[in-house]
Design a protein around this nucleic acid. Sequence first.
DNA 1: CGACTAATTGACTGTGTTCAATGAGTGTGG
DNA 2: CCACACTCATTGAACACAGTCAATTAGTCG
Lengths: 242, 242
Amino acid sequence: MPGNSTVLQQKSDCMTCSFRELCLPVGLTDEEIEYLGNLINYKFKVRRGEYLSHAGSDFKSLYAVKNGSFKTCVLKVDGRQQVTGFYMTGELLGLDAISPEKHTCDTVALVDSEVCEVPFKKLEEIGQNIPSLMSQLHKIMSREIVQDRGVMMLLGSMRAEERLAAFLLNLSTRLARRGYSPTDFILRATREDIGSYLGLKLETVSRSFSKLQEEGLITVNIKHITLHDVDKLNLRIGNSAD
Amino acid sequence: MPGNSTVLQQKSDCMTCSFRELCLPVGLTDEEIEYLGNLINYKFKVRRGEYLSHAGSDFKSLYAVKNGSFKTCVLKVDGRQQVTGFYMTGELLGLDAISPEKHTCDTVALVDSEVCEVPFKKLEEIGQNIPSLMSQLHKIMSREIVQDRGVMMLLGSMRAEERLAAFLLNLSTRLARRGYSPTDFILRATREDIGSYLGLKLETVSRSFSKLQEEGLITVNIKHITLHDVDKLNLRIGNSAD
DNA sequence: CGACTAATTGACTGTGTTCAATGAGTGTGG
DNA sequence: CCACACTCATTGAACACAGTCAATTAGTCG
């Protein structure tokens, strides 16, 4: 049973999951998915603000976000805290914990959410017989590395407004892949969380939102964001517009 | 043949490699290492300043650093460049390329170096029969994620001197694991590379070195660094001293 | 030795932080 | 239903840290 999350176990089912094309089952045959489904036995509900896992706790399972949204964050002994990632539907939580066999961060639900538990040892076991499952795991881990590199780029070489633009574009892309509007969405995180993730203070995040709005690139209504010119936003952060 | 590196192919041999306890063979039986050795056929020499791989090029193999030192860096269309990582003996290059199947960064030798080529498809294949090899790969990838998270922490919430202290401590730990002095070492990277990695300008890196030296925590002699008080350095970056 | 590249240091500038006040939104209880 | 408390967001003014520009020194390689 993870953290202090509300446990409401229920049989999970990859076959009927509408997000299996985003998650571990990618590239598997129906038969293989059935097999994987036997591994992924349970899904949990985690209510807004509750912890799915705590830094330092033992690692046993990965968690696939079935629906909802999470942040991961690290709290250092001197009180400094930092958000290290945001996770949405179909994304895999806990990859950082594999090597130390301890969770390295707290994982908190930003909205009422559900996760599917993936016991890691068992995943490696059945992976022996399903090559494409292993491949998919490797790709997911690689993607996590690429994503983190992107954040490093952002933190290391972008100014406040650029960081925020990059963050919004990243959300936009991920939402689009899930069938949501890439230009009109609701932020789940507070200004403080966003700031922490982007290496900025919440006031700077707020000011940057206002600046981007003044420039006509976005509209901000507290948590409701509309992107007006994705190409210009991309140019702003040093990507080609295509 | 990777990048424009000097190709001097030679049979590689994990069995006799003094760094196998840091690298992919960790936890494998002699028999399994023999098997792995058949996969890792060649090692390449890459001279200082030469590229092992270029961003955008096709991904076929991981490269294990046999000896020497590398940096990975990304160059954006607008000219911004950033160093995303430093790699030393026993570490695995190219994990970011698995998912996109293209290299996402340039990999450059900081000193004359050697790498062992690990064809990735084949690695996944023989991993089917050697569970501990797959586990080790997962641990290495997970460790890369943890390492990157550390850099994100650093970039997101530390000031210049703290960043530099964290960088030096990280190097120190990795060198110690390789049997080198953790308190007395030679930097392979320039101030500019270090700055790029830490999200600072080279002048700021230089000033931070001087500050830490004035405080008596380190001695700096261009590339030769001596750490005088690892505990205090750790406290400085919000780690407990133990 | 001369031509490089790399590193240090100083003076000034600018971006983001800090501190503070205000406003908007939400939930609770009288 | 409204008052109150609370959290979250916005905005302003002063300040600090790192960036920029520039000059100098140290080190390296042909």
